[in-house]
Design a protein around this nucleic acid. Structure first.
Lengths: 334, 334
DNA sequence: CTGAAAGCGCTTACAG
DNA sequence: CTGAAAGCGCTTACAG
């Protein structure tokens, strides 16, 4: 069942059929009706490979998700797809292993499939700096800034991670906490956790304390287990912390468990601040004070950047969406 | 940069280049080396639209995810992709709105893109019964059984939801609970929650109690908020429940919060059993007793079914993977 | 408004 | 082992 069959059956040429498929104007109402009817009757669907081959560079928007199991990214995909669907754009999502480098994968994907545009959920700036120049289609990096990179086809949307982490520290400080530990992420690279760390360090420095990474910081993966183990190690090592800042809600959730397992209470013995405002912090007992970054907003702005790019915008945009500290039950006054 | 360019540059014909791209044997070592070198140098990647157009029916495996935000599904995608990647099969995932019907979407997708195979993460049997016959490629339904449907190209892998729910009830019963409420899902259709409900009802009936849906059941969506609200309504209405069975861990997590907000304790006042064994139940305070279904195992078996189908297996397989009750801290003896 | 024809970038018999 | 040629199912000037 191809375009020829339906042309024959409708009594028109393939050119005319193609024109009605593509909604072009120069077709008689009669022909359009007849052809539409035949297509519906046969359940005909044009072969997309042939279409894309002809039309060139027209595969659906590709979304690359860095790592599997990141709840925030999962939450972004839905609204992103919804917004793009309003403009009749489909998306195709690919999950990348932690050891894959996103930009290289995207380059291969581009050569092979010619997507209209690409979105990166997460990603390390240094990989972009290295090889993004090989990418020609409009792209957007989500949850990290690409502003410094200066590519005309790479937009970005993120919160200000440094400022957000500083806000978390400020909050703890205002509540009287002076001995604050941090768990989560790693110091390597210019990734989000490193940015949050440096924001926190700067906030502390402003208040006259020099953050001791050896003693008061424990890195870990963005998983509950990571947060659990890291909090245990941190608390084993330091006896005097009154507060812990977890660089992600999943981590905070694990840390909360670890604290409970030590017979301590939150916020009675230890105050806790998370990051992201996922359901973990919203529904846990106690509810966790956290930094909210809106997945809906991130998705919305990313979609707009992509759409602008596809419409031919010459310049990339770099958007900082607002974050917010949401106070709940996990921090007490000292 | 197409196959002709690299053929010219390597000093061979396009046929030979095509053969090395596809790893066919009848090419001289010399030609292969030279061509590979030129391809690498140019960063050449064959146009997949053209390939798929020629090779017909050869687009990557399509994965349809029912609804956005289902943690279990998110957890299945990773291992599924990993296993398929071992066999050099890529996947392309599409998230479906709650109001889309998965089989119709798949039919359209099939016509347009000719995937090698398709996987459905979730899905309602009645839609499959209605229109799956239009689908020709090997498929697998995950988390629900397609055994009764009798399609030769539709395998399935799931746990026995009825038995699992019955096990949860049995556990509560053995611990002395007689007034058990249930929250989550809905009774309509032959979906998973309806199966769990009917398993629970049967287990109760075996023990001489006829489950009162009006009084002791409260439906809700598989979200924390849903579990929270449903538990509140259920507890408002009934004064004497000693245990609640939540049809999903997310729901249990919300219910746990609701119980705490009523000034009650788990398991002191109310015992709680969840379903899925996600991180919610593993790390919450208290840890929640739940039914474990292994996303890794589900993914693994689904991948095998797909692979078998792509290799030409004539018959579908219907696999029941084991579940397990994992006892934790949310149920007490009465 | 419509049809015939060329061509998108590949793969695969078919000769050699 | 290799090349020339046909054709996968479309779209898009080009004539009419």
């Amino acid at each position: 069942m191809d375009i020829r069959d339906i042309a024959a059956q409708a009594g028109y040429g393939v050119g005319t059929v193609s024109r009605v498929i593509n909604g072009q104007p120069n077709v008689s109402e009669k022909a359009r009706k007849r052809i539409l009817a035949v297509m519906a009757e046969c359940g005909y669907e044009p072969n997309s490979n042939a279409r894309y081959l002809k039309m060139r560079s027209q595969t659906p928007v590709a979304v690359f998700v860095m790592g599997v199991g990141n709840r925030l990214f999962d939450d972004i995909i839905g609204p992103l797809q919804a917004r793009l669907a309003e403009e009749d754009e489909d998306i195709v999502v690919t999950y990348l292993d932690d050891d894959a480098t996103e930009v290289r994968s995207a380059i291969e994907y581009q050569q092979a499939r010619h997507p209209k545009a690409m979105a990166f959920l997460g990603g390390e700036p240094r990989y972009f700096a290295e090889s993004f120049h090989e990418i020609e289609v409009p792209c957007v990096l989500v949850t990290n800034s690409a502003e410094g990179l200066g590519f005309a086809n790479l937009s970005s949307v993120t919160i200000d991670n440094e400022a957000a982490a500083a806000r978390a520290i400020e909050h703890l400080w205002e509540r009287g906490h002076r001995r604050i530990g941090i768990v989560g992420g790693s110091r390597t690279e210019n990734n989000v956790s490193a940015q949050r760390l440096s924001g926190a360090e700067a906030a502390l420095r402003e208040r006259g304390v020099s953050f001791d990474y050896e003693r008061d910081y424990e890195p870990c993966s963005f998983l509950e287990r990571g947060g659990y183990d890291a909090a245990q190690r941190l608390l084993d090592r330091t006896g005097d912390l009154t507060a812990v800042f977890a660089l992600g809600d999943v981590i905070a959730f694990g840390a909360l468990r670890a604290i409970a397992d030590r017979g301590l209470s939150v916020p009675g013995d230890i105050s806790l601040v998370g990051f992201d405002d996922t359901s973990f912090s919203q529904f846990s007992v106690p509810r966790i004070t956290t930094i909210r970054q809106s997945s809906a907003l991130l998705a919305e702005r990313a979609a707009e950047a992509l759409l602008a790019g596809m419409r031919g915008a010459a310049e990339a945009t770099h958007e900082l969406v607002p974050f917010e500290l949401v106070e709940r039950e996990s921090v007490r006054d000292l």
